[in-house]
């Protein structure tokens, strides 16, 4: 049969290669030489997250093409495991403690208020890229329950009504840093 210029594989392959760091490309190459290259999907996704910090759209599509695993399956796997992040983590990572002590003291309400104020669910990041929301188990600061951690700072004890003011402080801090040209 004729293969002709209508083929877009060279272009698709090139674009896919550009979307991934060399270490990942090498790893995919290695996997393709193995007996069941497709079963390497999860391992490849781990590599991408190690190298890029998260699994972006371009990276996932590129993995699908280069590993020849259907794109829907790649997304299926990437969204199934909590470990994988599909968006870059926000500048401030908020970890809500749902350990026993915090839970008893109303961590759930704090958590709900956070979701309301930020407009995101657990494991998600706000559209402006400022905050990511996650939960965690006992942080070892039960005396302050209920507590949340924002990056390395512990805040507690918190009432739901404390949340807006607290978030505002971080927003201001981000603004100031931007104005000062710092990142």
């Amino acid at each position: 049969m004729n293969r002709s210029s209508t083929d877009n594989w060279p272009a698709v392959r090139e674009a896919s290669r550009k979307a991934l760091p060399p270490a990942v490309l090498d790893f995919i190459e290695e996997c393709r030489e193995r007996e069941h290259p497709k079963s390497a999907l999860i391992a490849v996704l781990h590599r991408v997250q190690d190298e890029c910090g998260h699994l972006g759209r371009d990276q996932l599509n590129a993995v699908a093409q280069l590993l020849q695993v259907p794109t829907a399956r790649v997304y299926g796997a990437a969204t199934f495991y909590h470990f994988f992040r599909l968006r870059p983590r926000g500048r401030f990572l908020i970890s809500v403690c749902l350990g026993t002590a915090c839970y008893v003291k109303g961590a759930d309400q704090v958590n709900r208020r956070l979701m309301e104020e930020l407009g995101v669910g657990l494991g998600e990041t706000t559209a402006d890229g400022l905050f990511s929301l996650e939960t965690t188990r006992c942080l070892g600061t039960c005396g302050l329950a209920p507590v949340i951690m924002i990056n390395d700072n512990v805040h507690g004890p918190l009432k739901p009504d404390d949340i807006p003011g607290l978030l505002e402080r971080y927003i201001q801090r981000a603004r100031k840093e931007e104005a000062g040209g710092k990142t």
Partner: peptide
């Protein structure tokens, strides 16, 4: 192979990659 399950448990949703628009999927 356009469809698969996304997310897990109660949140599982069946759809094309990224649950994107059908006409932009494969």
């Amino acid at each position: 192979f356009n469809l698969s399950q996304h997310y897990r448990g109660f949140n599982t949703v069946v759809g094309p990659a990224e649950l994107g628009p059908m006409d932009e999927s494969v």
